[in-house]
């Protein structure tokens, strides 16, 4: 197991390096001068060159990459061009809010998805299965930003039950564990949860049906085990895969929250990305994407290691 973990980490390192390179190059595929948003339109050539030197844009690309990487490794992601604040601080503030939202969404989605998936897999081809499968297809097909709008229309605009935007009362951007903040979390979290709900339900339906068709289940039944005891065996066999899917979905939600955060003005990384894109704040864009992508790689790594620890049959390395 240790050896597997070690190999898996070794495999993740070049991926992380590659991910960093892609993030670094983002600034350089961008058309135009990245300094254009800080410089006054009538800036002199001398001032332009001075600023380029300050941000390091005057050096060769490989040199810029190595310097950027060395600084990023120590937690220095550069300075936001629009706000002149450190990118790392901006991202750190936003990441907490996105993690809160994504974690709640994963929890809701996984619970519902597991219920639908088990019901559908157990009663395959029954009306219950068709209903659960239909819900799963709806979950993966719905444009979530539109679902968010529809939920706002129903629960905020029409019924007035829940707030439509923000993370807390009075434009609060810090997450606090109280009722008011929780009320702000409900709509975005429910909107976000439909994606993992659909995927978990689809995966578990196929998995449960497959496990039930195996001979050992017939063996358990033949030995007279109660249906509940058989169910426990099915859960044990399905758990490693289910947990892996849940982990990966959490990663996808962290990286994919931008549309939902935009709809609900949720002060997380997606909101930050949106601002970075439209203010052409490339260091902020680069830093946010680097943090989210590395998060995803590490989460993938953890999921693989945990899954292998739970289920030695899939040890691959």
């Amino acid at each position: 197991m240790l050896r597997y973990t070690f190999n898996r980490v070794l495999y993740a390192l070049p991926i992380m390096l590659g991910v960093s390179l892609v993030c670094f190059l983002l600034v350089h595929i961008a058309p135009g001068d990245p300094l254009v948003s800080v410089l006054p339109p009538d800036a002199t050539e001398a001032l332009r060159r001075q600023m380029a030197e300050l941000y390091g844009f005057d050096r060769s690309l490989p040199e810029q990459f190595l310097r950027w990487l060395a600084r990023a490794a120590t937690g220095d992601l550069g300075t936001s061009i629009a706000t002149a604040r450190p990118v790392a601080a901006e991202v750190a503030r936003a990441v907490g809010n996105t993690v809160t939202l994504a974690a709640f969404a994963t929890l809701i989605g996984f619970t519902l998805g597991a219920i639908f998936g088990f019901v559908a897999g157990y009663f395959r081809d029954s009306p219950l299965d068709r209903l659960a499968s239909a819900l799963a297809v709806l979950g993966v097909s719905v444009p979530h930003y539109w679902l968010g709008m529809v939920l706002v229309i129903i629960f905020s605009a029409q019924l007035g039950w829940l707030p439509a935007t923000g993370a807390g009362p009075g434009g609060s951007t810090e997450w606090v564990w109280d009722w008011e903040h929780f009320r702000h979390l409900i709509l975005p979290a429910v909107t976000m949860s439909v994606i993992p709900m659909g995927i978990v339900a689809r995966t578990l339906r196929a998995l449960v049906a497959e496990i039930l068709s195996q001979e050992f289940v017939m063996g358990l039944r033949a030995r007279g085990l109660s249906e509940f005891a058989v169910f426990r065996h099915v859960v044990k066999n399905a758990a490693p895969t289910a947990l892996a899917v849940m982990g990966l979905q959490l990663g996808y939600l962290l990286g994919g929250s931008i549309l939902i955060e935009t709809v609900f003005s949720w002060p997380g990384t997606g909101f930050l990305l949106n601002a970075a894109i439209f203010q052409r704040d490339l260091p902020l864009l680069q830093g946010t994407i680097l943090v989210l992508a590395l998060f995803f790689v590490v989460l993938n790594l953890l999921v693989d290691v945990v899954q292998t620890a739970l289920d030695p049959r899939i040890r691959r390395a």
Binding site: P31, G255, L285, F296, V297
Partner: peptide, 19 residues
């Protein structure tokens, strides 16, 4: 390396940088 990015994030990163 490209597969290591969540799809939404990669799409937004690229089109955000490209404009």
């Amino acid at each position: 390396v490209f597969y290591a990015f969540p799809s939404v994030l990669l799409a937004i990163a690229l089109s955000g940088a490209l404009g």
